[in-house]
């Protein structure tokens, strides 16, 4: 008997385990799953190909002057320099305001906070803030940074816009930083306390260095999110036509009328797309995508380079 059973070829066993005949239902299902992946990838591919092909004439004809010119009523002379300046200032404000506050909040919640009602309220509140639509943050910015604090921010200025976007990404910074802190093993902290270190010493010298790559990745990704947001800037009052910066000093530009890269995309996208502004919109999108996607790529590289598996 034993000899007979070993004589059965493996192929026969495999076939009888797999059932008789082909599994059509299974194959069709797998085909549909694969189709959904392909559709997703196709959307991205078509989007990028479409935008780049529309934008190409602008870059071949205008070259660098598209990057260095100001907004203008004539498409042939319009450029995105004011948008680049606005987005740059916004990025700096987000880094200065949202990053420290967000990381400190995450440290408080993960390393210091006792498990009380107040702590639970704070963390539920942060999760909900992360889901508030961006346009509502724009209304907050309009009420607080433009109207209430107008004398300090200059009203509808890039400073008000930057502060609004800093508040917008704050919950994202907190949530991603808290996740990185949570991933640090408890044993590391206990080792620190064991040799007599205080809570701050443990946090600063043991926990933060271990969590730094994760925190950095999350914060960098949130920066790219801030630079792509348009709706809050519309509400805060970024300029929706063209305007001249002229010879205004940098300080005047900080407190005066402003725009940003995504805002320029929105304004040109509202022009009739058959006009000369069609290719210009695509070109501005290419610049915007180069900025946000390269920040994303940098963050993903950071994560892959420093990712730790405890």
């Amino acid at each position: 008997m034993a000899g007979a059973s070993t004589a059965v070829p493996a192929v026969v066993v495999r076939r009888s385990l797999a059932g008789q005949g082909a599994d059509w239902r299974g194959l069709i299902f797998q085909g549909l799953l694969l189709l959904s992946v392909v559709i997703t990838l196709l959307f991205l591919f078509i989007l990028l190909a479409d935008v780049f092909s529309r934008a190409l004439p602008v870059f071949t004809e205008r070259g660098g002057s598209f990057l260095s010119s100001s907004l203008s009523s004539s498409a042939a002379r319009s450029g995105v320099i004011q948008g680049l300046f606005g987005s740059f200032v916004i990025a700096i404000i987000v880094v200065i305001v949202a990053f420290p506050i967000g990381i400190m909040t995450a440290i408080y919640l993960e390393e210091y906070a006792p498990d009380t009602r107040l702590t639970q309220l704070i963390s539920i509140n942060i999760r909900n803030l992360a889901g508030v639509p961006s346009v509502v943050y724009g209304l907050l910015g309009l009420a607080v940074f433009v109207q209430l604090l107008g004398p300090l921010t200059g009203g509808r200025s890039v400073i008000a816009g930057g502060l609004t976007l800093a508040v917008l990404v704050l919950p994202i910074v907190i949530i991603t930083s808290a996740e990185s802190l949570r991933a640090v093993p408890q044993a590391l902290r206990e080792a620190g306390y064991g040799i007599g270190a205080s809570r701050w010493q443990v946090t600063r010298s043991l926990v933060l260095p271990s969590a730094a790559p994760g925190i950095l990745t999350g914060t960098v990704l949130s920066l790219s999110r801030a630079l792509g947001e348009t709706a809050p800037l519309i509400v805060v009052g970024a300029v929706s036509g063209y305007f001249s910066t002229g010879n205004a000093s940098t300080v005047d530009q900080l407190f005066g009328r402003f725009t940003a890269l995504p805002m320029i995309v929105f304004n040109w996208a509202r022009e009739p797309q058959q006009s000369a502004f069609g290719p210009l919109t695509a070109a501005a999108i290419v610049v915007l995508l180069l900025v946000t996607l390269s920040i994303n790529a940098f963050a993903i590289l950071l994560r892959n380079r420093f990712e730790k598996n405890w």
């Binding site: 997703t40 990838l41 792509g228 695509a282 999108i285 915007l288 946000t292 996607l293």
Partner: peptide, 24 residues
């Protein structure tokens, strides 16, 4: 391969998708 591509799609600003919806 697919996961990072999904992340790229997630990172595309919505104003760009608006333009894509209108023109493609």
């Amino acid at each position: 391969i697919v996961k990072p591509i999904l992340e790229i799609l997630a990172g595309i600003p919505s104003v760009v998708l608006g333009f894509f919806a209108l023109t493609w």
